[in-house]
């Protein structure tokens, strides 16, 4: 069971980390505040999920042991969230794709048999609802904006489309949790995701590419090259001082 929660926790930590990279470097000051808000939502969910995963695992690992002392092959996040930020168009599309999946996911998880999961779900449905709105607003404006932004938004769709499918695939661990009523079934959320995406993409004048080769592997620890660099940076201080408290 704890492995299924780790997948979720890793998704949120890695995405939160990526979003936090924007802080101080956003296209306008207002977004310097918006992006950290989204990052803090993700990191907050990750922390609760790590704590619960550690508890279920029963090996005495706390949130920091799980976040800072596992290597890239042990991380179980989907590939979408580890993608480098790219430009603002890619960051916003990635956020929309993730939130459009997680919002119905957390909504369904409100009925989880696990109290900690229900707790995260209660907060995260609202957070992801806001992320859909905020990222969606930007995808629409960039898609239907000026020639350069339309071009960049189209490129973002090309870049990220291969990473959508993995959201709907349940690993063996996730399937066990789904059967136990702890987590919602991923594949069942496809229609809800598609409804949000096609609404936003329609307003943005964007089309989903027809022939996409899905990229997967994150749930088995087969990542893109980007994750190793992210972890090397994120874990550097923590790992340089074994046993230290912070």
């Amino acid at each position: 069971m704890h492995e299924a929660l780790l997948e979720l926790a890793d998704d949120h930590l890695i995405l939160g980390h990526r979003l936090s990279e924007w802080c101080g470097h956003a296209p306008m000051l207002e977004e310097d505040l918006a992006l950290p808000n989204m990052a803090l939502d993700c990191i907050g969910s990750a922390r609760t999920l790590y704590a619960r995963a550690g508890e279920l695992e029963g090996a005495g690992r706390d949130e920091d042991a799980l976040a800072y002392r596992r290597g890239e092959r042990a991380f179980r996040n989907c590939l979408l969230v580890e993608r480098e930020n790219g430009d603002f168009a890619q960051t916003m599309l990635r956020q929309l794709m993730f939130a459009a999946f997680m919002e119905p996911y957390w909504h369904a998880a409100l009925g989880s048999t696990d109290e900690a999961v229900r707790g995260v779900a209660g907060k995260a449905t609202k957070e992801m609802g806001y992320h859909i709105r905020h990222a969606g607003e930007w995808v629409i404006r960039l898609g239907d904006g000026a020639p350069e932004s339309t071009l960049r938004m189209g490129r973002a769709v090309e870049e990220l489309a291969p990473y959508a499918d993995e959201l709907f695939a349940s690993s063996a661990a996730a399937r066990a949790a789904e059967e136990a009523g702890v987590l919602p079934e991923r594949e069942a959320l496809r229609p809800a995701w598609e409804a949000v995406m096609s609404d936003v993409m329609g307003q943005a004048g964007l089309a989903w590419p027809d022939d996409v080769w899905p990229q997967t592997g994150g749930r088995e620890g087969r990542h893109t090259e980007a994750l190793g660099h992210l972890l090397a940076e994120m874990q550097s201080v923590h790992r340089a001082h074994p046993g230290a408290a912070w």
Partner: peptide, 18 residues
């Protein structure tokens, strides 16, 4: 922010810089 050595410190620093 990207190297904060614990998740608690990471969240606090991010909120502070924000």
């Amino acid at each position: 922010i990207t190297r904060a050595p614990s998740l608690k410190r990471k969240a606090a620093l991010l909120a502070k810089v924000q």
